[in-house]
């Protein structure tokens, strides 16, 4: 199985095809509904963003509380389509890859193609399994919203499937 690392090799990203399975190692950032809303508000106001979006990987995830002696709690993907309204602007600002579950809107597909980004899915509803691939966790921003905070995760061989590739190809077909 192919492996990719962060910082992302942009040529390699462009060569990936929808349906391909691979393993990701490196740094990813969790962000879900409220974090997206806040980031987009910050961009529109021109205020400071808590993460560098250029070539970043965002994981749509809100983990459980961290059990004692563990790196992270259960941490599977949440439904990506709820982030659709915010995604095109983040892609404009340099976001390169997203990890989640389920379909994306046509606008997001177009934006992914335009900015040569990529959308991955990972094992949905398998948060206990996926916790095993996380090696380090650091809270980066929005700690006040608990599970919706932005966390910086170091992952090793995190399993992914390409759902929408940089050429607009989709694992879900043409719908």
């Amino acid at each position: 199985m192919r492996k990719i690392n962060t910082p992302l090799d942009l040529n390699k990203i462009k060569s990936l095809k929808a349906g391909e399975e691979l393993l990701l190692s490196g740094t990813i950032y969790t962000a879900r509904d409220q974090a997206h809303k806040r980031m987009v508000e910050a961009i529109k106001k021109g205020t400071h963003l808590p993460v560098e979006l250029k070539n970043a990987v965002i994981y749509y995830c809100g983990p459980t509380q961290r059990p004692k002696g563990r790196i992270i709690g259960s941490c599977g993907p949440t439904t990506s389509s709820r982030m659709d309204a915010f995604t095109p602007l983040l892609l404009v600002k340099g976001l390169k890859a997203m990890i989640g579950k389920g379909k994306r809107s046509q606008e997001v597909k177009n934006a992914i193609k335009k900015h040569k980004g990529i959308y991955f899915v990972t094992y949905a509803g398998c948060g206990a399994l996926l916790a095993g691939y996380v090696k380090k966790v650091q809270t980066v921003a929005y700690g006040d919203i608990g599970p919706e905070a932005i966390l910086k995760l170091e992952v090793k061989d995190f399993p992914l499937i390409v759902a929408i590739d940089a050429n607009g190809g989709s694992i879900y077909g043409k719908d």
Binding site: G62, T64, R70, G76, Y123, C126, G127, A128, A131
Partner: peptide, 17 residues
């Protein structure tokens, strides 16, 4: 596998509890 890990390691089956 996820269900087995959750049971063994006392982790939530899904992060959305």
């Amino acid at each position: 596998d996820n269900a087995a890990i959750a049971e063994k390691e006392k982790l939530a089956i899904c992060q959305d509890t």
